Computed example of a mutant assay.
Amino acid sequence: MASASMPWFPIRTARLLLREFHAGDLDDIHAYASDQNTVRYMEWGPNTPEVSSQRLHLTLAEQEQWPRRDVNLAAQLLENGRVIGSVRLGLDGQDGADLGYVFGSSWWGVGYGYEAASAVLAAAFDTLELHRVWATCDARNAASVRLLEKLGMRQEGTMLRDRKVRDGWRDTGLFALLNDEWQVRPG
């Protein structure tokens, strides 16, 4: 697998630096991870300060290993250094990976999610030469569905009441994109 040779990050985009997490990111992480709006459709949160700290320490320990299957990157604003979310690529060991992301609600609607996710997809397909990347989201999360579709992912199905979250069982949409589809996308 191409990911085993060397890290494919950090990634710089027009407005973001996608990089490994640092211990000093805790306040920024907790700001979005404790926000009810941010975590509304997530399986976790809202975080207490203790949970945010524990999760960051676990992430920092995971970052000590290379190669690793799950790569979690902080999404840092270039303009002020603030971490506003994260993007994750979880390699399956069979030329595929799942994509995940979270951005603080204060930064929704201005394209940061698309910017970060498309940069990670470019790394997945162009650098790691993966065959397939998929993502899931709560089917009620219309903004995330739109983002996945804008990335060129197609909905492959809906898993009915497959995850128990704060407000009960949720339906989960499954989206995917193949490398050959990525290579011929417009623009």
Rank of each mutant, 00 (worst) to 15 (best):
E79K: 12
T136N: 11
L128Y: 06
G90E: 15
E115D: 14
A116C: 10
E64L: 08
V133K: 09
T136V: 06
A116N: 10
T127G: 01
G96A: 11
H131W: 05
Q76Y: 06
N80S: 15
P67R: 07
D138F: 03
A61I: 00
Q63I: 03
W66F: 01
H131D: 09
I84P: 13
V110M: 03
T127K: 03
L78Q: 15
S105D: 00
G85L: 01
G81H: 08
A97T: 01
A142T: 10
F103A: 03
V133R: 08
A117Y: 12
A143M: 10
F125T: 03
A139D: 10
Q76L: 04
A97Q: 05
G111D: 13
R132Y: 00
V102P: 06
G93V: 06
Q94T: 15
L91D: 02
V133P: 09
G111W: 12
W66I: 01
G81P: 11
Q94S: 14
A97P: 02
V120H: 10
D95I: 00
A123H: 02
W66C: 02
V87E: 02
L89S: 01
L91H: 12
W108A: 07
A142F: 05
Q63T: 02
Y112L: 15
E62L: 07
V71C: 14
W134H: 15
A143G: 07
A75P: 03
L89M: 04
R68N: 03
R88L: 10
A124L: 04
D92C: 01
A74Y: 01
R88T: 07
A142Q: 13
D70S: 12
E129K: 08
L121G: 12
R69I: 00
E64G: 01
L130K: 06
S86V: 03
T59H: 03
Y114G: 10
F125H: 09
Y101Q: 05
S86Y: 09
A117V: 07
E129N: 09
C137I: 01
A124M: 06
V87C: 06
G100N: 15
A116E: 14
T127W: 00
L58F: 08
F125C: 04
L78T: 09
A119D: 14
L73V: 04
T127C: 00
E129F: 03
R69S: 08
Y112K: 13
L89N: 05
R69E: 08
D138T: 06
V71K: 05
R88P: 04
C137F: 02
A124T: 05
D98C: 11
S106R: 14
Q63P: 05
L60P: 04
A135V: 09
L77G: 07
D92L: 09
A122M: 09
R68A: 11
A119K: 10
L73K: 07
E64W: 00
E129Y: 07
